[in-house]
Nucleic acid binder design. Structure first.
Lengths: 260, 260
DNA sequence: ATTAATTATATTGGATCCAATTTGCAATAT
DNA sequence: ATATTGCAAATTGGATCCAATATAATTAAT
């Protein structure tokens, strides 16, 4: 139980650099120093996820992947027993999800998966086209060598993969790869939160109407613009890509969705 | 205790429309119907704030007004006794604030007011100029008659008021008034969250360097563009206004702030 | 005297318990 | 039959308690 004893034991086992978990919580990197004495150095501490973090991530994933239907109630007891915790971490997770807009709660009634109207979907896509085109333009200027290769990899996999469940994930990774060199962390986090709100509809539309070939073609255009170092073209194509996706998605939703 | 008894009692007291609180919670509007019989109608139900909502709002206000300094620890016990609650609602409020980026938490160490670097401030202002200019352009097209008068009121008060504490509030209200007719709720909520992150720095700069005359002049320009129905000019001026404010603020921060 | 080890205290994370509220259902009255 | 009332189950909001961890203070060791 004592963390120091734990470390000593590990150090006697392996006298080089090791990674261990102290008392089951903080992850520490431990090294012997140059004289090989048993001094320890905490090189890197990674925050271990709390129960509420785990619940939050799991629910978030389930919602954005569309595994939980819009409006579905999220019972605290149910979720708590699912994760073998009490309701306290569940409630914290739910209140965070509400803050992000993925969940809607009513006092004494509980939390529900927050569906969004077609109008809101349209608005969000307009927002995306505005922000993402700006970000990709900024990214192209300082794009790193490995990034283009990485993006091309995602592009290739995206065009080849048959599993519809992976399309959403790959699509997102492709775009994010091209955005991340912009070094605009605030913009990136906004983009991520925004995508969370519409990802499940996008996934549904991609799989049910086979929007992959079109998306794929447009991805190639964006990728080539980045490879050419043309920020303006990358921005324009990104804008078109998103606004085009909006139209397809709206049409899809109006057909497949009973008005809420 | 019984809500029905409560309502009956109120109805015998006053036979016209009344507002009452049932069992201390939901607020209901109650009316007699046309025959003046004692039937009740729940006209409007307003969700009563939970303890966690109250704590959330109060902490949020304290942070964005700058009453709590960056990095200041937010002790659960302290806050709980301040609001006469247990730590549970406090923790929910803190996790929501963290999700919004106003608070940073470290496991087993607690929550702290999340300060942001000068780079982040700059990035956020660039983001604001992008989004807010777009929104004001959309708003100008469908601006309602009362809105212009309302905005002009805020402009007048802003130019006259002497209390530095009110400047931040009035500045925000002025802009929000001009944005709200855009009917873009998603954009508006993003703008609000974004402003929350930088509002306290803006307030500090406004009061300490007397940036009011400049802001005021620019507000007038924006207002006139809206009155003229010129979406493009309103957007351009908004962009200039925000980017100009960014430069002043950055300079201010670099002078008055020890590097974190 | 300085460094390491130990203890004590403060603080957070989580579990369990209780109170307030909603909701569905049965019973009653009109 | 229909509307109203009363009651019970389900569910959430919050309080209190305990465990895990971090930090400060103290003691021991060299």
């Amino acid at each position: 139980m004592d963390p120091i004893c734990n470390i000593k034991k590990c150090l006697y086992d392996e006298l080089q650099q090791i990674t261990l978990i102290v008392a089951g919580h903080n992850k520490c990197r431990v090294q012997t120093d140059k004289e090989n004495s048993l001094k320890l150095k905490v090189v890197n501490i990674a925050k271990m996820a709390s129960a509420s973090d785990i619940v939050f991530d799991a629910l978030r994933q389930a919602i954005i992947k569309g595994e939980l239907a819009d409006g579905e109630p999220l019972r605290q007891d149910e979720i708590a027993s699912l994760f073998n915790t009490s309701r306290i971490p569940v409630r914290e997770a739910l209140s965070r999800l509400e803050q992000q807009g993925l969940v809607r709660t009513e006092r004494y009634k509980g939390a529900f998966v927050a569906g969004i109207s077609t109008d809101e979907v349209a608005e969000i896509f307009n927002f995306r086209s505005l922000v993402e085109s700006t970000v990709i333009a900024a990214a192209v200027m300082k794009i790193k060598p490995g990034t283009l290769a990485e993006a091309r990899d995602y592009y290739e996999i995206f065009s080849k993969t048959q599993d519809p469940m992976e399309w959403g994930e790959l699509n997102r990774k492709f775009h994010y790869t091209l955005y991340k060199d912009s070094e605009l962390p605030f913009h990136l986090s906004i983009i991520n939160n925004t995508l969370d709100r519409v990802d499940r509809y996008l996934r549904a539309q991609l799989t049910m109407t086979d929007g992959v070939p079109k998306a794929n073609k447009e991805h190639l255009g964006i990728l080539q613009a980045c490879e050419d170092g043309s920020a303006e073209r990358a921005a324009d194509l990104t804008q078109e890509h998103i606004l085009g996706a909006k139209d397809v998605l709206i049409e899809f939703l109006e057909k497949h969705r009973r008005p809420a």
